[in-house]
Write a protein that binds this DNA or RNA. Structure first.
Lengths: 186, 186
DNA sequence: GAAAACATGTAAGTCGTTACATGATTGG
DNA sequence: CCAATCATGTAACGACTTACATGTTTTC
């Protein structure tokens, strides 16, 4: 995808960061969007440095421990903004396992099929519930423009609507196969 | 992901196929779900063969041209069914570019932001429209149980609901930033 | 006769994960 | 003092893409 570097630039652009900070951002609040590991982040930082998009200063933590605090360069800001305002999107459909399995549903019995769908529905609707709760928590304090929290809020809404659609789909499938089964036994 | 082999097994299970057939299925009607290239398919066929999940016979096409027609073995059927009825799902959030960009929206002006969202909305709603049309085409002839077309139909519905949710999200974002902008100018 | 489709592979490189490796600092 | 967290890397492997490579058959 090639956008890991830009996501990293975006984080460094918000505030000077160490590889560890970036790593934590990805496994923390950014995690639902993208969970990049430190083993990918450190090498990418090296490349960004080589390309002149970031620079770093060495900080001494405690007595000896060195850490590298990265900062975005002017060149880096330009590259980031160019990416941010770019328009090419190739939205690869994510191939989740359930969808692939459903494609081959003709090999399942009614009961197996139903069980699969219900199991999945359980998980997805639990997910949806927790996302809805999170949305509610924002509702007293919806982020304004030019606030870095606007992105968080919008992605949360995205996740919520996505999960909602997934549950709708599962319900649709359940209804559909129930209908077929009913017709058969008539 | 490790499920390519099972998707391939599923196709071969439907009917004996050559690597080329499988490749075409992936770039054709399966394409929206998964677009595996022949350069991935041929090596995987080799592995499936080594693992005894498929076997093949050589067919002569025309005068000289050899093709390998693969067939699923009993072992292959077992492996496929086990996967099909398995329950572990790790639904990685797909990281599409737009979502990542929206996460960093604080760096955009109102106009840039709006333009991005509108552009995306245009594409997504065109997509949604064409998916809705395809659904309508099915509607006189909704596939029954144990028909391989039931999978096609369900995945089509999945895609439609997914796109619908995406457009809803974009509309939500557009409304939201419009509100903010209005408040600002009051 | 030429183009499109059939047919099968390999190689190089990117992206990402899991595991290997190491050590310092902070808070209880 | 021990565990959690801070901090930074490398190696091996798997999934996937793009490009390299080759040849046949069908259709117009």
């Amino acid at each position: 995808m090639g956008s890991l570097r830009y996501a990293m630039l975006g984080l460094i652009n918000r505030e000077p960061s160490t590889g560890y900070d970036i790593s934590k951002a990805f496994s923390g609040k950014l995690g639902s969007l993208w969970n990049a590991k430190h083993s990918q982040i450190y090498p990418e930082l090296k490349k960004l440095l080589e390309d002149g998009l970031v620079e770093f200063e060495t900080i001494i933590q405690g007595e000896v421990m060195e850490k590298k605090l990265y900062n975005i360069t002017l060149e880096g800001k330009d590259a980031f903004m160019e990416w941010l305002l770019s328009e090419e999107e190739f939205y690869c459909a994510p191939n989740d396992n359930l969808r692939v399995r459903m494609y081959f549903c003709e090999n399942m019995t009614f009961e197996q099929f139903r069980k699969s769908l219900l199991k999945q529905r359980e998980r997805r609707s639990a997910d949806l519930e927790s996302l809805s709760l999170k949305v509610e928590q924002w509702n007293n304090n919806i982020p304004m423009f030019n606030s870095p929290e606007l992105g968080d809020y919008m992605l949360l809404q995205n996740a919520r609507l996505r999960e909602k659609a997934y549950v709708e789909w599962l319900d649709y499938c359940l209804n559909h196969i129930n209908d077929i089964e009913k017709k058969k036994s008539e």
